[in-house]
Every structure is written in structure tokens, then in C-alpha cells.
């Protein structure tokens, strides 16, 4: 049994487990990076971590503030250019893109651009794509981590498709010119874990976090979800995982506020 933990910490631990050792991941700022570091420090020491600013295979000593700061090239094997990273992903070397966003829909389309219905005068302007659209278009699988699971963030229709999920359904990515056998594979939230049903390409609940019910997930989601036959319960974090999160990865409390 581990000590008290938050669902947010648990989410990071569950997200880390989605990354297989010996594969390559292109990763974005914040929680995806926390999960990636945790994977590197636990079950996946040979995970190849790739940053869009040009860092390849670093050994991350502490959570970077930016996907381009000095930590992202700490004990790296190669430093290169942004376009070289995009070429590497397009050429098929990168298994996972690991992303977050402000809004998501049932096809895994992500919005990190704006809230509102007027592009010229949005209610809130967010950063935009950065490298997210590139990663989500080019990598084999897209893993998505969504904090604060609520109907405001899990919506029927995102206000802006920044990064492609399955767009409008099966075959849509290919129809628009994106490569076959690509797209989102997992969505990890602070309530549960989804995959995507192969036939419909829509989000499917496969596991709930301890203490969370299927009803809770349905209530927190703004679109109808598919529910797998056997919804599992995720494993709570271990003492060691919690120690790594707080003492090694994020000691300054950027993601897990103190």
C-alpha cells in the first residue's frame, strides 16, 4: 500500500506505463514530460526521448521548463535542428507523440489554439500548435494526457482542431492526406484511461482509477463514450513512483504545485 496520493499523481504514473522500453517518444511540455521522465526512471531506461528543439536521447536530470532548455540536452546522444526532428518523425523512427491540450473530442482531436467561436476575437487565446500538430500528424501513435477531466474539456466538438486525432471518423486521416496506421491510441486523464475502438475510432473507456466509477466518467465527459466489456481498475502509485515525482522529477513543484 502506498501513502496518500492525488489522482493527478496517479494519472502521471498510469501515463508513464503506456511507454514501452526501447521505443522512441517525441514529447511536449508539462505532464507528458513528467510521465516520460518517470518511465525513463522506472521501467523504460532505454526509452529514446526526442525534443522538437533538437535534443535526442538525453538523460533528464530534472523537469525541464521548456522542451528546448539545457535539461533537454543533458547527457544527450545528439543535438540537432528542429527540422531534423520533424524529418525523423516523418521518416518513421518515432513510435509515440506524447501531447496534452485544452479540449478534446471523441475522435481524439485536440485544441490548444483558442476558446470561443470567433477566431479573430477568441475568449481565450492559447499557444497554438507549437510542434503538437507536427507530432500528431507524423508519429505512429499519439498518447494524450488530459488533466481536469470535465465536460468543459471533453467536448462534442472542439472549438478549434489544432492537432488531428481521427478527425471525423474511420478513414478520415487517410482521406485528408495523413499516413495510414497513425493516430491517437490512449487518453490518460485524472479519472480514467481510454483507448480508441478500432471500428469507430471513438474513445473507449478501458480503466478507471481506484475510487472512480464508470458513472463518474460518463458525468465528466461531454460526449457519449464507448465502454469496454471489462473496465479495469488502474494500479495506485507505488511509494517509489511518488518519491521520484516529488524528489527527483519535479522538486520545485512546477507541475505538482507545493
Amino acid at each position: 500500500m502506498s501513502r496518500n496520493y492525488t489522482l493527478r499523481e496517479l494519472m502521471a504514473c498510469v501515463a508513464a506505463k503506456q511507454l514501452e522500453d526501447g521505443k522512441a517518444v517525441a514529447v511536449g511540455t508539462g505532464l507528458p514530460l513528467v510521465a516520460t521522465m518517470l518511465a525513463q526512471q522506472t521501467h523504460a531506461p532505454n526509452l529514446v526521448i526526442i525534443f522538437e528543439a533538437g535534443g535526442i536521447a538525453p538523460q533528464l536530470p530534472i523537469l525541464p521548463i521548456s522542451v528546448g532548455d539545457s535539461r533537454t540536452i543533458h547527457k544527450a546522444l545528439c543535438t540537432t535542428t528542429l527540422i531534423d526532428i520533424m524529418d525523423t518523425i516523418r521518416r518513421g523512427y518515432v513510435d509515440y507523440a506524447f501531447l496534452g491540450g485544452a479540449q478534446i473530442d471523441s475522435y481524439g482531436n485536440l485544441n490548444s489554439t483558442m476558446i470561443g467561436d470567433d477566431y479573430e476575437k477568441p475568449k481565450v487565446r492559447f499557444p497554438g500548435s507549437g510542434g503538437a500538430n507536427d507530432f500528431g500528424s507524423l508519429a505512429w501513435e499519439t498518447l494524450i494526457i488530459m488533466d481536469r477531466h470535465s465536460p468543459r474539456r471533453f467536448v462534442k466538438k472542439v472549438d478549434f482542431i489544432t492537432t488531428p486525432g481521427y478527425l471525423y471518423g474511420p478513414g478520415a486521416r487517410e482521406e485528408e492526406g495523413l499516413s495510414e496506421n497513425t493516430g491517437p491510441s490512449r487518453v490518460i486523464t485524472d479519472l480514467c484511461l481510454f483507448d480508441f475502438e478500432p471500428e469507430s475510432k471513438r474513445m473507449r473507456l478501458i480503466a478507471c482509477h481506484p475510487g472512480v466509477t464508470v458513472e463518474d466518467v460518463i458525468k465528466a465527459t461531454g460526449f457519449e463514450i464507448i465502454i469496454a466489456d471489462n473496465v479495469r481498475t488502474t494500479d495506485p502509485p507505488t511509494e517509489e513512483e511518488l518519491r521520484l515525482l516529488h524528489e527527483v522529477i519535479d522538486p520545485l513543484g512546477f507541475v505538482f504545485k507545493k
Partner: peptide, 12 residues
Amino acid sequence: VKVMLGTDTMLH
């Protein structure tokens, strides 16, 4: 290029 396809990012 092979990015931005199918998205609002492309439409803007």
C-alpha cells in the same frame, strides 16, 4: 508538407 492536413490550423 505532410503536416496540418485536415485541421483548423490548416484552414487558418
